[in-house]
């Protein structure tokens, strides 16, 4: 009885933290991001680098945010990495995430010098936004895109990883 209560409590906690996470934006440094970018398993990871000031990013963001719903149960994980300045977290980023009702996990990369990390994210990334990485460790598939997507183009790319 006590065990089942504990499990119920843990499940509730998990649910709650999931719901809470959708509302918040955690601020991370590059080593933490690098850990997230090096996950190799049977999940297809989609990481989109964007910023509230980047018009093409804002335009394509709903398509990325929709992925977790469209591919629910297909092991697709979306991470939206805001490249806004950390000083804009409360003023711009959090209100944006709330207003757009983003369901995906959003983090803000708090680093001042892109020259120290862009190459480590991907040698092909020159620094233009938006930038997207899609990979699946188990399938040894990886692709990066320094350009914007239409919803149809994004779906086509994701499908290549779910074959």
């Amino acid at each position: 009885m006590r065990l089942s209560k504990l499990i119920a409590f843990a499940a509730a906690l998990l649910l709650w933290s999931g719901a809470a996470r959708a509302q918040q934006v955690s601020v991370i440094k590059f080593p933490e991001l690098q850990k997230r970018l090096s996950r190799q398993n049977d999940t297809t990871y989609v990481v989109n680098f964007w910023a509230t000031w980047c018009a093409p990013c804002v335009k394509e963001l709903p398509a990325f945010d929709q992925l977790s719903t469209t591919y629910a149960g297909k092991k697709v994980k979306v991470l939206l990495v805001s490249m806004d300045y950390a000083s804009q977290l409360d003023k711009k980023v959090k209100p944006f995430v709330l207003r757009r009702e983003l369901k995906s996990e959003v983090v803000l990369l708090n680093e001042t010098d892109p020259n120290t990390y862009l190459e480590k994210v991907d040698p092909k990334w020159s620094g233009a936004l938006p930038f997207t990485m899609i990979w699946n460790g188990k399938k040894s598939k990886r692709a990066t895109f320094e350009r914007e997507f239409t919803p149809a183009e994004l779906t086509a790319e994701i499908k290549k990883f779910l074959l």
Binding site: M83, P114, N115, G127, A128, P130, E148
Partner: peptide
Amino acid sequence: STKAIGCTI
């Protein structure tokens, strides 16, 4: 040669 963040052309 260095890299920076910027707006896509």
